[in-house]
Design a protein around this nucleic acid. Sequence first.
DNA 1: CTAGTAGTGACAATCATTTCCATCTACGGT
DNA 2: ACCGTAGATGGAAATGATTGTCACTACTAG
Lengths: 141, 141
Amino acid sequence: MVGPTDDLDLIGRRTAQRACVVRALIDHGGFVGARALHGILESQGARVGLNTVYRTLAALVGAGRADVVRDRGGERLFRHRPFPEHQHYLLCRVCGLSTPVDSEAVESWAERVAEASGFAEVEHTVELTGLCPRCRSHPTY
Amino acid sequence: MVGPTDDLDLIGRRTAQRACVVRALIDHGGFVGARALHGILESQGARVGLNTVYRTLAALVGAGRADVVRDRGGERLFRHRPFPEHQHYLLCRVCGLSTPVDSEAVESWAERVAEASGFAEVEHTVELTGLCPRCRSHPTY
DNA sequence: CTAGTAGTGACAATCATTTCCATCTACGGT
DNA sequence: ACCGTAGATGGAAATGATTGTCACTACTAG
Ligand SMILES: [Mn+2]
Ligand SMILES: [Mn+2]
Ligand SMILES: [Zn+2]
Ligand SMILES: [Zn+2]
């Protein structure tokens, strides 16, 4: 396990704003959009520009310290990734709660398909979404 | 195999515009964006509003006659689906060429993960992208 | 401490998609 | 064939996420 400090080292200069963004992303735990994260920071009294939130998240993704998925509306949702390994998640469509899933089977499947295809530089995106037990009971307040 | 006629029956009234959109989508063969499809129609002299292109594609998706993926920029790409079965594709990031892939392994994997998770209404998106043999050789003209 | 460069943020721009709404038309009665 | 009308069209404006611009700020190497 690593902390926010390690993330900051990977993405350039250490600024108060980036520290806030990384801190908030880690605290949130699940997948969260840039605008929502910016809202959280505002409610904490942290003065960080939305643009900086976007840039910091992009930097984290580039450094392999965050994962990205697209929600139904096409918005990008980010989640901090404490470990360097490639991950896939099952996430709740309502609250963003996410749990890593064992993706051994898909990884090997994707590799097999890629080889048989004649295509080069094959990449894959795999996303599972559903309703978590908690949101499942709630009558969508 | 079914033709454009069958598609039109599924999505409401038969209008010249919808016929054009469905025809163009089928002729294109691979995945294509709404705007690009609209451009194709324009170059054919077909007077169809972009709005109608979007609506027709949405209707096809709703009727299960088209598949959707997101490209890297977040744009939605559509492909006509002649058969009713759920499909996954390997598609070229450059030209949009797509080939259905056998996804038996992922389907069962997704089902297994869903059951073990406690989540309800679990859905999945699986996309493979790469460079097709043709685009692979071309030096990105 | 200072220079120099990377980072910041208010604002404008972009881009795909949706919403509005006035107008049109396909089509099931008659 | 003729209506009436719900459904369809399309131009323009709105939306919403993301990126570009650029003057200003503040890390940090030396
Ligand atoms: Mn994977
Ligand atoms: Mn599937
Ligand atoms: Zn939930
Ligand atoms: Zn290609």
